[in-house]
C-alpha cells in the first residue's frame, strides 16, 4: 500500500513535469496539445477513497494551470472528471466495475477503450468549453476537443502499452 502511494505521488509529479516540459509544447495544428497528465486519473486505483481522489484531481489540475498559466480550465475539467470517474467506470465496465485498476490485463479491451475514450473526450470538451467560454465558438470547441481527444488517446494508449501495470 505504501509502495502504491509513493508510486502515485511520483507519477503525480512526473506527469505534471512531463506535461509542462514536453507535451504542452507540441502545438499540433497551432494549438492542439495532448493532455497526457490524464494518465494519473486513468491509472489511479479505482477502489481508493473517492474524496481523496477528487482532492488529488483538483490539485493536479491546479498545478497544471499554475504552471501553464491557463487560469482555471484544467482545474475545472480535471476536478469534474475526478468526480465523475465512478460513473464512467460503472458505465464502461458494467458488472465488473469493482476492479482495483482499470487498465489491467483481464479486463476486456472494449471496456478499456470506452473508459479511456470517455475520460479523455469529456475532459477535452470541458477544457475547451471553459477556455472559449462563448457559445458562438461552439464549432471551434467541438473541433479542438475532437483533435485533442484523438491525439491524447493515441499517446496515452501508446504509453500504457509501453508501461503495462502488473
Amino acid at each position: 500500500m505504501l509502495q502504491e502511494n509513493i508510486r502515485s505521488g511520483i507519477s503525480f509529479v512526473v506527469l505534471i513535469l512531463l506535461q509542462f516540459l514536453l507535451f504542452s509544447n507540441i502545438n499540433l495544428m497551432g494549438m492542439i496539445n495532448p493532455f497526457v497528465y490524464l494518465l494519473f486519473v486513468i491509472r489511479f486505483r479505482l477502489d481508493a477513497n473517492q474524496s481523496l481522489f477528487i482532492v488529488l484531481c483538483f490539485f493536479l489540475g491546479l498545478f497544471i494551470d499554475l504552471i501553464l498559466g491557463t487560469a482555471g480550465a484544467h482545474t475545472i475539467a480535471t476536478l469534474t472528471i475526478g468526480f465523475l470517474r465512478p460513473l464512467i467506470v460503472g458505465f464502461s465496465f458494467g458488472v465488473n466495475a469493482d476492479i482495483p485498476y482499470a487498465m489491467v490485463k483481464g479486463t476486456r479491451i472494449a471496456n478499456q477503450l470506452t473508459y479511456l475514450g470517455l475520460i479523455i473526450s469529456l475532459h477535452s470538451i470541458l477544457y475547451y468549453t471553459i477556455q472559449y467560454f462563448d457559445w458562438s465558438a461552439f464549432l471551434s470547441i467541438i473541433k479542438n476537443a475532437l483533435f485533442s481527444t484523438i491525439f491524447t488517446f493515441i499517446l496515452i494508449w501508446l504509453i500504457l502499452g509501453f508501461y503495462k501495470p502488473k
Binding site: S51, I54, F58, A71, G72, I76, L79, F83
Partner: peptide, 16 residues
C-alpha cells in the same frame, strides 16, 4: 464527495 466537488469547483471558478 459531491460537496467536496462543489467546494473545489467554486474555488476553481473563483480562480478562473
Amino acid at each position: 464527495n459531491f460537496f467536496i466537488y462543489l467546494l473545489l469547483l467554486i474555488f476553481s471558478l473563483l480562480f478562473l
